[in-house]
Design a protein around this nucleic acid. Sequence first.
DNA 1: CGTTTTATCTTGACAGTGTCAACATAGCCT
DNA 2: AGGCTATGTTGACACTGTCAAGATAAAACG
Lengths: 201, 201
Amino acid sequence: MTNAVQSYHHGDLRSALIEAATARLSQHGVDSLSLRKLAEDAGVSRTAPYHHFKDKSALLSAIAAKGFSDWHSTAKRIFEQEDKTPQERFREFIHEYIGYAADNPEMYELMFGRTIWQNQAATNDLKDVAFPCFQFQVTMTRYWQDKGLLPNNQDALRLAQVTWGTLHGIARLLIDGIYADSSHIEEMCDCAADLFMQKQG
Amino acid sequence: MTNAVQSYHHGDLRSALIEAATARLSQHGVDSLSLRKLAEDAGVSRTAPYHHFKDKSALLSAIAAKGFSDWHSTAKRIFEQEDKTPQERFREFIHEYIGYAADNPEMYELMFGRTIWQNQAATNDLKDVAFPCFQFQVTMTRYWQDKGLLPNNQDALRLAQVTWGTLHGIARLLIDGIYADSSHIEEMCDCAADLFMQKQG
DNA sequence: CGTTTTATCTTGACAGTGTCAACATAGCCT
DNA sequence: AGGCTATGTTGACACTGTCAAGATAAAACG
């Protein structure tokens, strides 16, 4: 694609690396993602990436950051649909969340996996994108509490952690292939939604 | 410990490897767990482990199997306390589940992480121990439905997947350090329990 | 008992990996 | 024009999982 003249300086290696990494990620998974292969994909030597990313973790964080940015947009779009009832939006959000995870398992694994979060390894750039995304979960939760969909006697932050935890847990059970397969995704989502909104039937 | 005479044949290398691995696991994490180091710990050459485990994944599966076995016992013990009400046991189970994950993060990560489950990599030995453990979750769910703690209009399997998913998700958010820290574990557990048992107050 | 089979352990080797150090190039600024 | 700095290069190191081929000891068998 961007292969005009093979010059000493690549021109936009950083973007090329992220692009190559994203492609490889969705096809072969996060585990088979090596800096050396990415460098080769970009037509550059093994250690060139180190001039754009501190280490492998930093590259992965950059990819995940883009994922969070995308998901944040999707979440907002769903939440701000004025023509639908809060309950409709709530259900849609659940289905979309699980659907996103099921459709992009490797990206989800990267975004919410321990690889980039453990040992405080998360880049500041990553946190800057991810934290607002988490915060939005709390904002939505508070809204649904106000609308009477979720119990009002619970702290919004705790409730957000629990409801999000539920979605996260279901997503991971699906993705990791643990006692749940993708043939019953919709039923699981509905079951979760029903459970949250018990009082409202 | 088991270091009598340094003979050509170790004697019980398989157990020694699992023991060394379990120790290293809890201290340094699953990522820094190499067959070579384990072999060295056991005072044996690099490739000796291959006579007891097909590959690295098989060794990890063996460790996880022990974890499942232990957890299954704990779950049963909690569930079968005749002197406590179903509701008390339900709450205790939630707290114990999250507590186990928080106290043994590396073991939990191994047991429920993608490392040993992805690509159908799970050993039959592992499945033989893990599946009854999953099934027990369904059994308990059905019981709690009968006792009126959980909604009776839901399929037990789906409900088990959702409730377990919740615990799993909370555990992972905690372990991976994503927008939740260990200082509010109890509150999160209570919030989850309240949410599940809404109708019953 | 001696012999043979089998389980176990060894060294050697290979293809990978992330990452550092030292050096090369080229574009930019003064 | 000259130097600074961003970017790219090769070389090297320590580490990984895993296979192949040979060594040893214990167990099985005649």
